[in-house]
Amino acid sequence: MQLRINSANNTNFVSVVTTCPVCGKAGSLIQIKNIADCRLVTLEGAVYYTGQRCCPNHECNAHIFFTKGSDDSLTLYPKLRIDFNSENIPSKIRSTFEEAVICHAERCYAASAIMVRRTLEELCQDKACSGKNLFNRIEELKSSVVLPTELFAALHELRVLGNDAAHIESKDFDNIGEEEVSIAIEITKEILKSVYQMESLVNRLKSLKKT
C-alpha cells in the first residue's frame, strides 16, 4: 500500500474518543501541543489520520499513538486490552493471565489460548491439586473451591481450547480466533473472581453495615 502524507491543520483535527489502554478510563484523548496529526491517503483513495494523544485522566496521562480511518476504525498503541481486576489474585496467576490478555490484544490468539490454559495450571497448583494431568487436577479442584457448576464445566472447555491451540492434530475447535479467545478470557475472569475476589467483596459489604 502506497501513501501520500500531509500534515493536518487544526481544521482536520481528529477526535479520538476511546478507552485508555493504560488506565482503562474512557474519554476524549487530548491532543499534544504543537504536534499535528498526519493525513494519509492511499492510492485507492482511502483516508487515514495518525497522531499522538494523551489520556485525559491526569493521574494516568499516558502517551498514546493512534491511527483512525474515515470509516471510524481505530488502532491504538499501546493496544487496548480487555479490562482485568487483579486484586487479591496470587502473583503467578496474575502474571500468567495478564500475558493471555496481552497476547489477545496483539491478536496472537493461539498464544493467548495457551496462556489461558497455563492460568488454569497455576490455579490448580495454588490450590494444591496434584492429579497426573490437567483434567484430573480440575476434577480435584472441585473439592478445593466453590464454583457454580457451569464454571466447573467451563474449566474443561478452556482446557480443551488451550490443547487445540498447542497441538495441531487437535480438532475440538475448528478455529482459535478472536471470538473464541475473548470468551475464554471473560470466563477465566469470572473463575478468578469467584475463587479469589468474591469473599473479599462480601466482607467489604459486611463492613459497611451499621454496628
Score class of each variant (00 low, 15 high):
residue 168 I to M: 08
residue 172 D to V: 09
residue 202 V to N: 04
residue 181 V to Q: 01
residue 192 L to T: 02
residue 199 E to R: 13
residue 184 A to N: 09
residue 178 E to L: 03
residue 184 A to M: 12
residue 195 V to R: 08
residue 207 S to Q: 09
residue 175 N to L: 08
residue 207 S to E: 07
residue 188 T to R: 01
residue 182 S to I: 01
residue 198 M to T: 15
residue 198 M to E: 14
residue 162 G to C: 11
residue 164 D to T: 13
residue 192 L to C: 07
residue 172 D to H: 13
residue 201 L to F: 10
residue 174 D to G: 07
residue 191 I to N: 05
residue 200 S to P: 00
residue 195 V to I: 14
residue 192 L to P: 00
residue 197 Q to V: 03
residue 187 I to W: 08
residue 166 A to D: 07
residue 159 R to L: 09
residue 168 I to D: 04
residue 171 K to Y: 10
residue 201 L to G: 05
residue 201 L to C: 06
residue 186 E to K: 14
residue 195 V to H: 00
residue 189 K to E: 13
residue 180 E to Q: 15
residue 178 E to N: 03
residue 199 E to F: 01
residue 170 S to M: 11
residue 181 V to G: 05
residue 202 V to S: 05
residue 174 D to E: 11
residue 166 A to S: 15
residue 198 M to A: 13
residue 169 E to P: 00
residue 188 T to K: 04
residue 164 D to W: 00
residue 180 E to L: 07
residue 175 N to P: 00
residue 174 D to R: 10
residue 174 D to C: 01
residue 198 M to V: 13
residue 196 Y to P: 04
residue 199 E to A: 11
residue 185 I to Q: 01
residue 202 V to Q: 07
residue 178 E to W: 00
residue 190 E to C: 11
residue 170 S to V: 02
residue 171 K to L: 10
residue 164 D to H: 02
residue 172 D to L: 07
residue 207 S to N: 12
residue 179 E to F: 08
residue 160 V to P: 00
residue 187 I to K: 09
residue 200 S to C: 03
residue 204 R to V: 06
residue 188 T to V: 09
residue 195 V to Y: 06
residue 163 N to A: 09
residue 190 E to T: 08
residue 193 K to H: 13
residue 197 Q to M: 06
residue 161 L to K: 06
residue 158 L to T: 01
residue 202 V to I: 15
residue 167 H to I: 03
residue 185 I to S: 04
residue 191 I to G: 05
residue 204 R to F: 06
residue 204 R to N: 14
residue 186 E to L: 14
residue 202 V to W: 06
residue 197 Q to Y: 05
residue 180 E to W: 01
residue 179 E to T: 09
residue 171 K to Q: 12
residue 174 D to N: 09
residue 198 M to Y: 13
residue 201 L to P: 00
residue 195 V to K: 05
